[in-house]
């Protein structure tokens, strides 16, 4: 993948970067995707593993109540997710905070979460949903955005991190 990202150092010897994205907050999803795309611009083979609330960043816009268990359904209403509805970790104020933040980002030409997700996919960044979190929350692959890699687990993440030169937990 690395040779598709603009670097000359692709192939087996490419540096690897792994990000564990465990937060569904806008102010965490932003640095995750900014660092992932920049890593790809550096010719690194980048994988982002979306787990727990981080999985909500990958939820397809328009997907409503998910899961079969009443608790899964309630959680899917309480924590809606999708790239365009992420809350702020602080000063959320029932959506006022993110609304102001996204308005500012738009005025200042900061790329949105959706744009960065698209760029990440175009640049060959691997986006891994956590299978266990999908099962826990009752999310299927149809509930998630297109262009993701196969769901994986902690073992795959550890195997990758053992070889990676940059590992981040955000």
């Amino acid at each position: 993948m690395a040779d598709e990202t603009g670097a000359d150092r692709g192939g087996a010897g490419a540096d690897k970067m792994v990000i564990i994205a465990a937060s569904g907050d806008l102010d965490k999803a932003w640095p995750v995707l900014i660092l992932a795309t920049t890593g790809a611009a550096y010719g690194m083979e980048v994988t982002v593993f979306f787990t727990f609330w981080g999985l909500l960043v990958l939820k397809k816009p328009g997907v409503g109540i998910t899961g079969s268990d009443w608790r899964q359904k309630m959680l899917s209403v309480m924590a809606k997710g999708t790239p365009d509805h992420l809350p702020l970790s602080r000063l959320n104020f029932a959506g006022m905070g993110p609304w102001m933040m996204k308005g500012l980002a738009d005025d200042k030409n900061v790329a949105s979460i959706q744009e960065l997700l698209g760029l990440a996919r175009d640049m060959g960044v691997k986006l891994w949903p956590c299978q266990m979190t999908m099962d826990l929350m009752g999310l299927t692959e149809d509930d998630l955005i297109d262009g993701l890699d196969e769901p994986a687990g902690a073992g795959s993440a550890i195997s990758l991190m053992k070889e990676a030169s940059i590992e981040l937990f955000i």
């Binding site: 603009g6 900014i34 790809a40 030409n109 640049m123």
Partner: peptide, 17 residues
């Protein structure tokens, strides 16, 4: 122009390839 971090690095890396 007018694009914020990380776009300048992303744009030049894409052009370079």
């Amino acid at each position: 122009r007018n694009l914020q971090c990380p776009m300048p690095v992303l744009k030049i890396s894409q052009a370079m390839k």
